[in-house]
Simulated assay, not measured.
Amino acid sequence: MEEYKLQWRFAHPKYWLAWLGIFCLFLSSLLPYSTILIIGRGLGRIAIPFANKRFHTARRNLELCFPELTAEEVDQKVKTNFENTGIALFEIGMAWFWPNWRIRGLSRVRGAEHLDKALREDKGVIFLGAHFLTLEMFGCVAGLHSPSHAVYRKNSNEVLDYWFYRGRMRHNKAMLDRKDLKSMLRALKKGQTLWYAPDHDYGKHNSNVFAPFFNVEQANTVSGTSTLARIKNTTVIPVFLKRLPKAEGYELVFYEPLTDFPGEDVIEDTTRINQQIEQMIKECDVQYMWLHRRFKTRPEGEPSLY
C-alpha cells in the first residue's frame, strides 16, 4: 500500500521525536531479554507519579471487576500492571526488530491442536483476542505459528503508524481497519484467519450492546464477533499471549473453539464472548490493559463509573 511506504514528508521536524523514539526502541531491542524486563519494570514504576489519571482508571477498573479484592490488593495489582506496561513499551522494539530465531527461542504454544484441526477442515477462523499488554509480541509469536489478518486502529502520527503497520506485517498477511467489515468477511469466506478483539469501549455505535463483563452488568461491548461468526464454515478460537514468570519468555494459548456459536440472541452471544475474555484475563490479570476506560460508556441515564 502506497500509504505504508517511507515518504519524504516523514523527515519533517514534527516527526523527529517519533524517529528518536524508534531509534531508542531499536537500541533497546539489542539488550538481553532479562535486562529488558528489569528496565521495563523500572520504567513502569517511575511512570506512576506522572500518570495519576491512568492509575485511577486502572484502579477503578479492577475495583469494579474484582470487588472481593482489598484496597491494598488492588493497588498492588495496579503497580504490577504499570510494570507490565513498561515492559510492553520495550516489546514494541522486540516485535519490530528481533529476528525470528530469537522470538521462537522465547515462546511456546499451548492448545495448538484446536487451531490445527480447524485449518485441516478449511474453516475460516476468528482469533478471539483481547487487549493484553503483550499485544505487539502476540502478533509475532502468533504470526510465526499461523499468519493471519488482524484488525487494527490507525495511529494519528504518520511515522508511528508506518512503523506499527510495518512491524505487524512482518509476520501476518494483512492489517484491516477496524471499520472495514467487508474485508473481514471476505477473509473469512476464503478460509483465512482473522484476529479480532472486541473488548475495548469505543463509545456508542450501532454494533455495540451492553453485556456483563466481570462484575459490571452493563458493559458497552462490540458485538461484531457474532456477526463475523455467521459466515459459513467459520469457527471462533479464543487466543492470547501470556508473558511467563522471570525471563522464561511467552506462552501462546489457544482455547477450544466456541460451540453452538453464534446463537439467536446477540446479547447472549456477546455475553459468551465476554466470559471467554474473562477466562483469559484470569490467567494473567496484571498483563491486561486496565489503563483503558473499559466502562466509560453507560446506558442512558446512568452515572459515570469513573
Rank of each mutant, 00 (worst) to 15 (best):
F213W: 09
N208K: 10
K204M: 06
V209W: 01
T225F: 03
H205I: 15
P198Y: 11
L194S: 09
N206H: 13
G191I: 00
P198A: 14
K189C: 03
K204I: 12
G224R: 13
N220W: 11
I231T: 00
D201T: 13
F213T: 13
F213M: 11
G203E: 01
T227K: 11
T227V: 14
L194D: 08
L228F: 14
N206S: 14
G224T: 15
W195N: 11
N208C: 14
H205T: 15
G203D: 03
Y196H: 07
F214K: 15
S207A: 13
F210W: 00
V216R: 02
T193L: 00
D199R: 01
S226R: 02
F213P: 14
T221P: 07
A211G: 00
Q218E: 15
K204S: 04
I231V: 03
F214T: 12
S207T: 09
Y196P: 14
S223Y: 02
L228S: 03
Y196D: 12
D201E: 12
D201P: 10
P212F: 09
D199N: 05
G203S: 02
H205P: 12
G203W: 05
Q218T: 15
G224L: 15
T221E: 06
Y196N: 05
S226H: 01
T225L: 04
T225G: 06
F210I: 03
T227P: 10
L194V: 09
Y196R: 07
G203A: 04
F210R: 01
Q218A: 15
P198E: 13
V222P: 14
Q192A: 13
H205K: 08
R230V: 08
S207Q: 13
N206L: 08
S226D: 01
I231W: 01
V209I: 07
A229W: 06
N215A: 12
K232Y: 04
R230A: 09
G203L: 04
N208H: 10
T193F: 02
L194K: 09
V216F: 07
V209G: 04
H200F: 06
Q192R: 15
Y202E: 08
R230I: 02
W195D: 14
E217K: 09
H205D: 14
L194M: 11
T227R: 11
T193N: 06
N220H: 03
N206F: 06
D199F: 09
A229S: 09
K232M: 02
V209R: 00
W195C: 06
N206V: 10
G203Y: 00
A211C: 05
K232H: 06
V209Y: 00
H205A: 10
P198R: 08
A219S: 04
G203P: 05
Y196V: 03
Y202T: 13
D199Q: 03
G191R: 01
A211T: 01
N215W: 05
A229P: 10
D199M: 11
G224H: 11
D201C: 07
A211M: 00
D201R: 04
L194W: 13
I231F: 00
V209K: 01
Q218V: 15
F214Y: 10
W195Q: 12
N220D: 11
K190F: 08
A197K: 02
Q192K: 15
I231Y: 02
Q218H: 12
T193R: 07
L228R: 02
Q192T: 11
E217M: 05
N208G: 12
F210E: 01
T221L: 07
S207G: 12
H200S: 06
F213I: 13
T193E: 05
